[in-house]
Design a protein around this nucleic acid. Structure first.
Lengths: 165, 165
DNA sequence: TATTGTTATACTCTATAACTATA
DNA sequence: TATAGTTATAGAGTATAACAATA
């Protein structure tokens, strides 16, 4: 509702965020390619690794990764063909598909992780001391929680029922 | 060189950064589309707007946006066809192409900016008070400067002269 | 010989809409 | 009727390599 333009402090924080994340993303992408993974695929594997039981439903993963369902289906197909994950019907809800890491998937992650961590450390972590790192983490976590408070992507209606677009 | 895995603090900051930037990117992209711009195109226009004289060389813009030269050529072509920028040979170096904002380009930016600012404010700025915003900006600027200290993308050799790799 | 930019090409990825099946 | 996922489709975007021109 506020219509005022951003002041220099706001602009600075915003632009720095955009620049930092795109530089980091680019370097990370380059490193992951040596292991035959894109960053989206890496995120999928990592998210599964962290999930309880190493399993996750399609929709939940799509929301976490900010990806469309069909986009996730495509990527899941690639990872399944590569033998890194499995897709199986969920036990409790027959509409759902549950993704699970395979042993090969786990191995792949652990194979990439050192190089990945190296890039993240070199670009993002090295220039900050412990206190600054704590602060950055706290601030970004606060922002993320705020962003996540909005309804996720999958909650959007898929069939239009209103005339007002 | 450090081979240790990331500790929870490091992981937290890293993951929060990735998540925040992809959520923000997604919302921004959606808003910009209402004005017929992608985020890359918006960044190009904004960078030109901020540049001294509203002009910039291709290579400099490619480095700033972390984009390949050919990718930038493609996007510059789109913006030129849309009448938002002009491309002309640089006065001092005949190899270079200088991009410049047109009046229509400036108008387009100012037309999108309020909605854009609104998204940024709502997602990124609102959950932070002044002190926190200052801190976030300072931290990210520090990281960015560190990242930018490395040689830019365009400095990479384009013809391989060594047998190694 | 190095640098700037363009082009040709091929490919990856993503989203929209339609469709099926289950709750 | 709403939700979960897949598929078909089509388009947009990116990079690599080869090329032309200038420094």
């Amino acid at each position: 509702m506020t219509d005022a333009p951003l002041d220099p402090t706001e602009l600075g924080a915003y632009f720095a965020l955009v620049e930092v994340s795109s530089l980091l993303q680019h370097s990370v992408e380059q490193q992951l390619r040596t292991a035959g993974l894109t960053s989206v695929q890496f995120k999928m594997l990592m998210t599964l690794l962290e999930a309880p039981g190493g399993q996750l439903r399609m929709t939940d993963l799509a929301d976490t990764l900010v990806l469309s369902r069909s986009g996730l289906t495509y990527q899941a197909g690639l990872l399944e063909n590569a033998g890194l994950i499995t897709r199986s019907p969920s036990p409790d809800d027959d509409r759902s598909t549950t993704l699970a890491l395979t042993a090969a998937g786990r191995e792949r992650i652990f194979a990439v992780l050192p190089g990945h961590v190296d890039v993240v450390r070199r670009l993002l972590l090295d220039p900050l001391d412990r206190t600054q790192l704590d602060a950055l983490g706290a601030l970004l976590t606060r922002v993320r929680d705020h962003m996540r408070a909005a309804p996720p992507r999958s909650a959007a209606p898929r069939t239009r029922k209103r005339a007002d677009q």
